[in-house]
Design a protein around this nucleic acid. Structure first.
Lengths: 233, 233
DNA sequence: GGGCAAGTCAAACCTCCGTTTGAATCATCG
DNA sequence: CGATGATTCAAACGGAGGTTTGACTTGCCC
């Protein structure tokens, strides 16, 4: 007896995709079990290999399917969509992104899981789904600062912004235990997004105003190679 | 024949701890294999169960051992250590933390791996090793802003700072592919740390100057529960 | 030396998991 | 109806991983 009502109307193949999407999102590729997927889909374990050839192929199909659905169903606020100022666009984008990080959307779960397990799917996932996000934010920051979108300073600012949001997702067990009043409802998400926005706007301004040496400082290359020490602590 | 010179002088138990520390740090608890640990330690697979009882118990011993070594060998710059200003202390702390995030220290690897797999060890790990870090940074931010160390605004600022640093660790495969000129040597780490510092200082000032409603906005609690929607995208 | 406990080892055990097999079922069409 | 191809199913296969077993070695004390 399957967990979820298996939608007898659809084909076994479709039910497998649906069930696998959920299980892969919850457990990642490695820890997801073919038997559990089939149980949830109300199908026989052999069905996976009959319809897809292998667990790996099923995974690819799930990702492809999630991509195609996520594209139109997950509209990222774009810089050119409305004639507001870059700051307003950034605020809107952070809110959008924070919602995706707090809410357990299947697509974000799949991406996080894939980042842990990194199968061969990671490259495609990054190129098709994450790089556009980076470039979009880079465009906003560039518009705010007058810097080139691919400049190092913009790159670092974008990482700072995304890093702040991603923190609540990737370090979720940590946040749940360390933050005194931790909730994940909508007003709370907006509170966090608001903070990230204000914090980042100030950071971006400070960085753009700083007359920085854009090239990576070669003058300090004299420091002995302290990198790659594997041992101790 | 074991991979690493197995230090014939030490006992089998100690060699097991050493080998297990490396393997657990590299693969996490779940993906680490008892057979590989024993191979590296030059021991028999049964040795784990003879000396520790189970793989789980070995894992606990590894964590305990790493804790005890990491404490004194991993000195976190403390606010009271030197009579500099809070800004200078924060700058020093970010540099220290960034080095730990970029460099592959065993302790940071163990923590990240444990955050993925979260076994029962996570709670202890957080309480003994991560919470002090949070509180230390909270103290710095509080000293800079005049806010209470446990206030919500300080909490959010600390998350922003740590989130920025953690990004380069938790999203490492992403950073490697998206950043145009990506290196992990010492000058590069200092470049990133410098950026995070300047970005954060400005963010903290902006947040502290904002006359914010400190209580979580209850007025918006009327929003219907949009949380926990599992489906779509 | 004899006995005894600690330690080590190869081999087997047990469970879980992805996959394969071969028979049974169903639909379609001549 | 009978044949054929697609689909479903229970059962088993083969391998990997943690654990157990039982014999063997080693060192120590009476």
């Amino acid at each position: 007896m399957p967990d979820t009502t298996p939608d007898r109307a659809t084909t076994t193949r479709d039910r497998l995709i649906d069930a696998a999407t959920t299980v892969f999102a919850e457990h990642g590729f490695r820890d997801a079990g073919v038997r559990e997927i089939c149980r949830r889909a109300g199908a026989n374990p052999a069905a996976v290999n009959y319809h897809f050839g292998s667990k790996q192929e099923l995974y690819w199909s799930v990702l492809r399917h999630a991509f195609e659905k996520a594209g139109p169903a997950w509209p990222m606020p774009r810089l050119a969509d409305e004639p507001t100022d870059p700051e307003g666009r950034l605020r809107e984008w952070i809110r959008w992104f924070a919602e995706r990080m707090f809410g357990e959307t299947v697509m974000s779960q799949l991406m996080i899981a894939e980042m842990r397990d990194h199968t061969e799917a990671l490259d495609r996932l990054i190129d098709e789904s994450i790089r556009p996000v980076f470039e979009e934010v880079s465009g906003m920051v560039a518009a705010m600062t007058g810097l080139h979108p691919t400049s190092r300073r913009v790159e670092l600012c974008v990482s700072s912004i995304i890093g702040q949001c991603l923190f609540y997702k990737s370090a979720k067990p940590l946040v749940e235990r360390l933050h005194s009043h931790h909730r994940r409802d909508l007003p709370e998400i907006e509170r966090v997004a608001d903070h990230v926005y204000r914090f980042s706007i100030a950071g971006i301004r400070a960085i753009s105003e700083q007359p920085w040496d854009e090239s990576p400082r070669l003058d300090r290359a004299s420091g002995k190679k302290r990198e790659e020490r594997e041992n101790d602590t």
